[in-house]
């Protein structure tokens, strides 16, 4: 329980620290939310600044923002004038989570199976193909993978839609583009771990008892390779969250990734701050979940 509270406390502190730094960063950038090609009249600008409290001191504005955060009120967006920050972000959470989980699924399923297959016969055909492929997908940025995927699966084969979010099929290409580079990394990790385990006496003993190879892989090797997989998932989630910004844009997915970038560009102070806090909270929660999984798999590790 103590460990839980400690972790919760550090998670909350991280959010507050990120909130403070993000507030300072976004406010020190040149340009403001109401700058546009067509200048507003001075009276309109003054009225807008008063409405969003931008006419008050920075300290006062920070305290107000902090108070809002503690009350769970992220305020109104300064760019999307009809909407509140939480309204905007909450609309994108299911899509972003769906995309992130799709990416993790691709990474874990492809990474673990190809890694195990590779470890079973080092330097064999499967191993050579897997190692080449994983190097390739790790080396190619996800937006290039996305482009290649669209060209092949949408235009050449005509199997999958090129963008949009209406059907589940719309998520296949984005999940692949997002997850494949991580699948490559995971495949290498599982291969290395698998090779170590397969060389152990216990596995040799199992083989000598005549256990089928698949049984050995499934029940003796796989559970033990999951420890590094779980440990890898924390940083991988971080990578996917940042990687999803580009993928969401390419596939026109209505997630929160684009807000993260666009809010900063629009100097939408409240939305930029809200998106940063949400990302920090999600990231903290994902690493926490991965740590819990690791400790479940290997009780020697504490969270």
């Amino acid at each position: 329980m103590n460990a839980f509270l400690r972790r919760l406390g550090s998670w909350a502190l991280t959010i507050l620290a990120v909130h403070a730094v993000a507030f300072l960063l976004v406010r020190s950038t040149r340009g403001g939310p109401f700058d546009s090609e067509r200048s507003l009249s001075p009276e309109v600008r003054e009225a807008l600044e008063a409405h969003y409290h931008l006419d008050q001191s920075i300290l006062h504005q920070y305290i107000e923002a902090l108070r809002g955060l503690l009350r769970g009120n992220l305020g109104p967006s300064m760019h999307y004038r009809d909407l509140g920050v939480w309204e905007i972000l909450s609309a994108g959470i299911p899509v972003s989570l769906g995309l992130g989980l799709g990416g993790i699924l691709v990474a874990v399923v492809l990474g673990v199976t190809s890694g195990l297959g590779s470890a079973r016969r080092p330097s064999g055909k499967i191993d050579t193909i897997t190692r080449w492929t994983s190097s390739l997908v790790m080396g190619i940025p996800n937006f290039i993978l996305a482009g290649l995927g669209v060209a092949y699966f949408s235009f050449y084969l005509g199997w999958l839609p090129s963008a949009g979010s209406e059907q589940a099929t719309h998520f296949i290409l984005p999940s692949l583009a997002l997850g494949l580079p991580f699948a490559g990394q995971l495949s290498r990790l599982v291969r290395a771990e698998g090779l170590k385990i397969l060389a152990e006496d216990s596995i040799r003993a199992a083989r000598s008892r005549g256990l089928p190879e698949l049984h050995i892989l499934r029940f003796h090797v796989l559970p033990r390779t999951l420890v590094p997989v779980a440990a890898f998932l924390g940083p991988a989630t971080a990578g996917m969250l940042t990687g999803s910004l580009v993928i969401e844009q390419i596939f026109a997915l209505p997630g929160i990734g684009t807000h993260f970038v666009q809010a900063a560009l629009n100097r939408d102070y409240t939305l930029a701050l809200g998106a940063t806090v949400l990302y920090t909270a999600l990231l903290g929660a994902a690493t926490w979940a991965a740590d819990i999984w690791v400790s479940r798999l290997d009780p020697r590790i504490e969270t």
């Binding site: 299911p94 899509v95 989570l97 769906g98 989980l101 799709g102 993790i104 699924l105 874990v108 979010s165 209406e166 059907q167 589940a168 719309h170 998520f171 779980a230 999984w293």
Partner: peptide
């Protein structure tokens, strides 16, 4: 079981995004 959880959640979230008739 965690992996299974991830799979089910992903499918549910994807299902949530579906079902819009095109204009």
């Amino acid at each position: 079981s965690v992996l299974r959880g991830v799979l089910v959640t992903a499918l549910l979230l994807h299902a949530g995004a579906c079902g819009k008739d095109p204009a």
